[in-house]
Design a protein around this nucleic acid. Structure first.
Lengths: 342, 342
DNA sequence: GCAAGAAGCCGAAACGTTTCGGGCTTTTGC
DNA sequence: GCAAAAGCCCGAAACGTTTCGGCTTCTTGC
């Protein structure tokens, strides 16, 4: 069986059958002026009869548009697997893309280099009209690559000075609230398990925690890196809980690390939240399913996806969209936070 | 900023600069015969200088190929979020697609109707050369839609009689082993929490469980539906554990339901695995992170993706690939299985 | 009743590639 | 030394759209 045995009706077929020029058919079908109501109807009817659907290929070539946008996910498979951001974000993107006749070209890259490479290939082959930039690193090389190519891009939670339009969801306020909640519960030694180094969102969460600590007049010294993985959380627990003056509360930069931390703490004989309080970030559904249920910070990846796509489409249309700020993340209070032990 | 301000080098530019005809440039760059080594080199050099990358658009139109395949995911967001299949499967697809110059067009559909609709649109607009068919339903309408359109497709774990090439991973053997393990531990009343009705994989797992039970000469009567969701698992626990003669072991058709079941059982004062044994299906990483760790059945969505893409590409190339069977799923023994209470 | 304008329609070019048939030149075989 | 074959290269058509300038025909305003 050949790849395309059944041949599709083209606009030429429609035009012929309706007895008009191709240009008239095109105008009629695209709601452009210059064709009388009666011919327009006739053309429409013929098109429907023939089951005509415009070929995105011809259209692409002619309009110099791919009608497709790209998203290169750069994440370890291990992390990806337990990551809610991914699916929800894409779902949000789709909400905007679909009604606009756009499709999403998704790629998964294992490493940063390959991620850059893939992004570049998408752009150079003119496969996409624009891309989403997520999981942004400090001095991310993708930014420069995109810039020299003049490819429209939108950043998800980038830092200040980002050269493309951005969509952001503030989480600093929620982190402040969370820390304040800990303080109100009597905690004074509050540690942070930070994410993978050199990621912008790692820094953002770290900075917010630091600010919150200093607002509470507490030292923001106790930080260990957990790399956003479960195992990182386990290691962090080992490191933090072996200290003489161990923290009584821990804020982990994502839920996966919080899970690892909790499990290791339990293995070490500590009870949560009686002996130690733990909070995560992301609000993944699994946090609801474990015991104690994980207190976290709820973000809205779906809205982030929806808005990013909207901004990207505007950018592709030649507009100059302003940055978008969606409603801030909120504290998701559950059971892993308790009063500080005395 | 216009969508395409920087203009890419085309094959015409290459041909002009190299002083040859376009057809020669094309032949040279595509390793086709009919051009001397020296001119070939010259053309290649010029192409490199100009940073020439063939436009997928022009190529698509000319070759009648999209160089892109489609995958429409039809799943509730709630399920999607905690689902490992998705990310790993796509990762596997990519492993095959990327070296072959193909891209993946991903869509997420909330409902079955919309899923069909999206699939059809992808096909009719000639956006893709083929599609993956996953989460197949009994009498899935997508099959017919694909058939009438003559669009290449490959099925993931379809049932017998599926009209397109298929890639399968057997799980019946593993389910047999799992049930046998339960029997060996003294269990006699073993229940099944099945997935969402009318899905092929729901039936497959149910049938395997039934077979295993009958091999062990046990009645395969106790079945409740859990719809593949966490809440379904919770409800299943309510239903099964309120019986006078409650089961001592439960096999859930996915891990998410097993999680719900375990949590509800714990809430009802039952201890796992002392009072009741629980097993899931999928082997999601979260199963490792909860206590007790969830015994499950490990599948290999990554390999499934990799092989499906391989088969799909062959099919697109006009070959007639045979069905592929990847190594079977295995039992992932952890802590949620124990001896039957007496 | 007539010039000017508008409306409706058409033909052709353009987008970037591949492919095919056909000339020209060089090599080969005898 | 000559015909045949091979090798190299070229021009043009085709893929399916959109778009633009121009040609008719109709309407309008006076």
């Amino acid at each position: 069986m050949s790849p395309q045995e059944r041949t599709h009706a083209t606009i030429v077929d429609v035009a012929n059958r309706a007895g008009v020029a191709i240009s008239s058919a095109s105008a009629a079908l695209n709601d452009r002026p210059g064709v009388s109501p009666s011919t327009r109807d006739r053309i429409r009817k013929v098109a429907a009869e023939l089951g005509y659907v415009p070929s995105i290929r011809g259209r692409s070539l002619s309009t110099k548009r791919a009608f497709s946008v790209g998203f290169v996910v750069e994440r370890d498979f291990a992390v990806l697997e337990a990551d809610p951001f991914f699916g929800a974000f894409i779902g949000g993107i789709e909400e905007t893309l679909e009604p606009n006749g756009y499709a999403l070209s998704l790629q998964i890259a294992g490493s940063a280099e390959s991620s850059l490479d893939r992004q570049v290939k998408l752009a150079d082959a003119r496969r996409v009209d624009g891309v989403f930039l997520s999981e942004i690193r400090i001095d991310d090389p993708r930014i420069e690559a995109l810039r020299t190519r003049g490819l429209p891009a939108v950043g998800i939670n980038p830092d200040a000075g980002f050269p493309f339009p951005a969509v952001r969801q503030d989480s600093a306020v929620a982190i402040h609230e969370l820390v304040q909640e800990m303080v109100d519960l009597g905690h004074r030694r509050i540690a942070h398990v930070m994410g993978r180094e050199s990621y912008v969102h790692t820094e953002q969460r770290l900075a917010a925690w630091r600010d919150a600590m200093s607002s509470a007049k507490l030292p923001a010294k106790t930080v260990v890196e957990g790399g956003f993985t479960y195992e990182g959380g386990v290691r962090a627990a080992d490191r933090l809980l072996s200290r003489k003056q161990r923290p009584t509360a821990v804020f982990c930069a994502n839920d996966l690390m919080a899970l690892g931390f909790m499990n290791r703490a339990a293995e070490l004989g500590l009870s949560i939240p009686d002996d130690i309080s733990v909070a995560g970030f992301d609000g993944i559904s699994v946090g609801e399913y474990i015991r104690p249920r994980l207190t976290s910070i709820r973000t809205d990846p779906r809205a982030l996806g929806r808005e990013s796509a909207r901004v990207l489409l505007e950018l592709i249309d030649g507009e100059a969209p302003a940055d978008v700020e969606i409603p801030p993340a909120t504290v998701l209070s559950r059971d892993s936070l308790g009063p500080a032990p005395r």
